[in-house]
Design a protein around this nucleic acid. Structure first.
Length: 103
DNA sequence: TGGTTGACAACCA
DNA sequence: GTGGTTGCCAACC
């Protein structure tokens, strides 16, 4: 557990219910601008029982980058929080984007 | 050591 | 809105 992952985990954990953010923003807010890919890699390697709301993190286009079963799983979680997600995994960033403000 | 890959981002057509 | 290209940075092979 290095500082980078710790910061990312904390930041993602700060995303309030019903809100989402992008990989790039998460990285930036955590103090590591330009490390968007690493945020994605971190999410990909999260343990199943993790308390991290990884499903609230999407790419800059506001779309889920996953495919197949993983995409469905994330979409279901978001829908359960009241976030509108299209069948293709597209989200209305305009309304659900989190600006990084503390809860 | 060096080329490839990736849950990305910004830009352009 | 969608699809292709380029830039990034570390992990992976």
């Amino acid at each position: 557990m290095d500082d980078f992952s710790a910061q990312i985990y904390t930041q993602v954990h700060q995303i309030p219910y019903g809100k989402i953010s992008t990989y790039g923003e998460i990285a930036k807010f955590s103090g590591f601008p330009g490390y968007a890919r690493h945020v994605g890699r971190l999410m990909a390697t999260l343990p199943e029982g993790s308390k991290i709301p990884w499903h609230r993190v999407v790419n800059a286009k506001g779309m889920i980058s996953l495919t197949g079963n993983d995409l469905i799983r994330q979409r279901e979680k978001l829908l359960a929080e009241g976030i509108d997600v299209s069948e293709s995994g597209k989200i209305s960033l305009r309304h659900y984007r989190w600006n990084g403000d503390p809860v």
